[in-house]
């Protein structure tokens, strides 16, 4: 499948990729292109982009096993660093959803869904690596299910440490983008604990340790 055969339109520039939309055998399709970053040494750039693409494809498929919604992968082009995947046309990022003043009343329910979803990922040892509210989609306003995206930094690990760091990344991303999200994060942790029966407790204990480490980091100069 070649992108150039059909009109693909640039719709977004995410944190490391350009996102184009088009169609794939009649289905709405999205192309995630990890374009060469000119600021990086070409050798380093190639290695990182390939690695991230592999991580992403692998984890998108693995999500299915964990019972977590994620876009279906249609096709991969390793040379151009393209992933063609299902375009969630009715998807809105959790970030935009929270910022929308009309959705205030359901935020606790949404937080609970976020916790459950991460709990499912972690019980299958999938570490997302970049858990932010930009990387979670809500379909047609249905907040009982989330579609997880952007798995470039993901990896598989069973350690409570890595799971704790995953939650810590989310906590800070939420605090810096969503005012007064402390209470939402509490709800996330509660439902996370219910879902990740395997090592949820241990992970939350780790999370406390990691927070403390951040606060204690000696900083001079």
């Amino acid at each position: 499948m070649d992108m150039k055969e059909q009109p693909y339109v640039l719709i977004k520039q995410g944190s490391e990729a350009k996102i184009y939309s088009g169609s794939f055998h009649g289905k709405p399709c999205l192309v995630k292109e990890r374009f060469p970053k000119r600021y990086r040494h070409p050798q380093l750039d190639r290695e990182i982009s390939t690695q991230r693409l592999k991580n992403e494809v692998r984890s998108l498929v693995r999500c299915r096993l964990a019972g977590v919604h994620a876009p279906t992968v249609y096709c991969v082009n390793m040379e151009l660093n393209h992933i063609m995947m299902e375009h969630i046309v009715d998807g809105v990022t959790v970030k935009d959803y929270i910022k929308d003043p009309t959705s205030k009343s359901n935020l606790d329910q949404l937080a609970s869904t976020i916790g459950t979803t991460i709990g499912l990922l972690h019980s299958q040892n999938i570490i997302h690596g970049d858990l932010t509210t930009s990387n979670m989609l809500i379909r047609s306003g249905d907040i009982s299910k989330l579609t997880m995206i952007d798995f470039g930094l993901s990896f598989i690990d069973h350690s409570a440490e890595d799971k704790g760091v995953d939650l810590y990344v989310l906590e800070r991303a939420m605090l810096s983008t969503h005012p007064n999200s402390e209470s939402l994060f509490e709800v996330i942790l509660k439902s996370y604990l219910k879902t990740n029966k395997k090592d949820g407790k241990e992970t939350l204990k780790k999370l406390d340790e990691i927070r403390l480490r951040g606060r204690k980091r000696s900083m001079a100069g």
């Binding site: 970049d130 995953d166 800070r172 991303a173």
Partner: peptide, 11 residues
């Protein structure tokens, strides 16, 4: 360019 460990975890 000598490849060196590149360690990024989220942010």
């Amino acid at each position: 360019y000598v490849p060196l460990p590149y360690v990024v975890k989220g942010m």
